[in-house]
């Protein structure tokens, strides 16, 4: 039994078991985050935002994405980051649950391709405010890349 299993897993590894996943990366308060590139529809330069009175702080406002009304979320506020957000924020437009949301970030990074087996678990010491949206961590050169799950963000905010 044991032999079989190990063979199997070995085979699957050889035949590409370690998938390469592409992540779209960006910076928020100088920290590097990544989202599965298939979930990102596009990246849009800073846009005029309509504020929503009474809404939660992290709901930055509404933007007009070519005729579609998209809710923009401030990751600074969502992650309760202390650093002050720059005046102009890039929009990372993500597909979530059939709708679009825009994650406001400071700066756009590269698209990186990483091995699906190469990650580390999110350390428990990370504050819950961010950790609940994180799925894994990659070591990318000198930097650490926190992978965010768009669905988790969407669900957490919905729930």
């Amino acid at each position: 039994m044991e032999a079989q299993t190990s063979t199997k897993s070995g085979v699957s590894k050889e035949s590409g078991g370690s998938r390469r996943i592409q992540y779209s990366t960006f910076y928020v308060a100088k920290r590097l985050y990544g989202i599965d590139v298939t979930r990102v529809q596009e990246v849009v330069r800073p846009m005029t935002t309509t504020k929503i009175p009474l809404a939660e702080q992290f709901v930055h406002g509404l933007i007009n994405l070519r005729g579609q009304v998209v809710t923009a979320l401030s990751l600074h506020d969502l992650f309760s980051l202390k650093d002050k957000a720059p005046a102009e924020l890039m929009n990372v437009i993500c597909k979530a649950d059939g709708a679009l949301i825009s994650l406001l970030v400071d700066e756009i990074g590269d698209v990186v391709e990483l091995d699906s087996d190469d990650f580390e678990q999110t350390p428990h010491t990370i504050p819950e405010g961010v950790r609940r949206f994180m799925t894994r961590v990659y070591k990318v050169g000198d930097n650490l890349l926190s992978i965010l799950d768009v669905d988790k963000i969407f669900q957490a905010l919905n729930g």
Binding site: I52, L62, T71, I101, N158
Partner: peptide, 22 residues
């Protein structure tokens, strides 16, 4: 409006005005 804003009963939706603002 997005699901995220469904608890805001003060709004029934959004619209895009002629000048493109929401």
């Amino acid at each position: 409006l997005s699901q995220l804003l469904k608890n805001l009963s003060a709004y029934s939706g959004a619209t895009i005005m002629g000048d493109g603002t929401v």
